[in-house]
Write a protein that binds this DNA or RNA. Structure first.
Lengths: 193, 193
DNA sequence: CAAAGTCCTTGATTTGAGATAAGAAGCTAT
DNA sequence: ATAGCTTCTTATCTCAAATCAAGGACTTTG
């Protein structure tokens, strides 16, 4: 019998006691999505929290100029959510899209509230995961406007190189807030060293 | 008898039932800080979560170039925290500083965990507050590199004008990721309209 | 009331990333 | 295989904001 990545995550990262794992798992349902499909889009309500068993998602925001700005990419064992919409049933301003054919485990609002209410370790683990995202965003914000495009790319290679293998460069350029042309020039320059 | 802003916040925003409010309140202790004092600094462990009864704080990050980048300002009724450090007792990379003489209510790790474990409405309220910050950061990140300095300042006036009255312009410039010179020119230009 | 220190403004100059345009390379499907 | 995509690269030009450099306005302190 195959071991579920979700189960492993709950046990090892969230430290959910064995007795709670089984009933937690039952609150989720599997979902397969095709490349480029959206899990939710701006204007819709985000009705689930998503756990990635296999594949790659990106969350993005469409700014006032109509441009897509990628907030983050998440891969295997990552969580994606938009609780501002999810908790209050109000339309989200964000978008969540699959960049590859992906296998997800998803949990709906009712079950999520139940899980948070009943399983302390899940609650604390969830808050912790939120905080990690939060901190990542703070750092990215602090660096976004200070680093040169070259510094951004070098940091990206250093910290998130796995993404480089599976994501088109134009998405990476948008993520790093530069044009594909600029990214291309930087890559050429660095390759020459 | 004076009504505590913290109590009002817990009741009205967090929807904590009356019976739980009293014991929640007891988990906090008051703290007064002077202008420019730090609540925590990079390298220390963030040992409390902070609620602002009166005053103004800023959280900032010192980037690789040694420059201070302000993540956010918070005022009356705002919460400040750095849970990545707080939950795991590891050194933070962020800084929290008072910009005015301020009155805070603070809660330590033990009591916070207790509150999260025992009072569901506090837990959900806390997650929600985290998410609001999270969303604000996502939006700011998405706009940060696209908006012109003038657009950033105009948005700031529109969305956060109260801050304009009480925070030095050079802090606002750093918050909006521009030099004080640029901000000064923009203000002149706008004033002339 | 000087003197020193902040904070803000103004001007001159430089520069690096965006915009624009065009072409090359790599895939996919029939 | 070739037509038609999508993605990536290269070159030129332009301009807006950073940098550099001073000076002015306030505030605090001895």
């Amino acid at each position: 019998m195959e071991v579920s990545p979700l189960l492993t995550q709950l046990k090892q990262v969230y430290k959910v006691p064995d007795r709670d794992c089984a009933r937690l798992i039952q609150l989720f349902e599997p979902l397969e999505v095709k490349k480029n499909e959206h899990l939710f889009q701006s204007g819709q309500v985000a009705r689930h929290v998503y756990f990635i068993e296999k594949g790659c998602l990106r969350q993005y925001y469409i700014n006032n100029n109509g441009e897509e700005r990628t907030i983050y990419f998440k891969m295997e064992d990552g969580w994606c959510s938009e609780l501002v919409s999810f908790l209050d049933n109000k339309p989200t301003e964000l978008n969540l899209q699959a960049l590859e054919d992906s296998k997800l485990q998803i949990i709906n609002q009712k079950n999520w509230i139940y899980a948070i209410s009943q399983v302390k370790s899940f609650t604390l683990g969830f808050i912790r995961a939120q905080q990690d995202t939060n901190f990542m965003l703070k750092k990215r914000l602090a660096e976004a406007t200070v680093e040169t495009p070259e510094e951004k790319y070098l940091r990206f290679i250093k910290e998130e190189s796995p993404l480089l293998q599976r994501i088109p460069l134009y998405h990476i350029a948008a993520y790093l807030s530069m044009t594909p042309e600029t990214l291309s020039r930087i890559r050429k320059k660095i390759a020459g060293k």
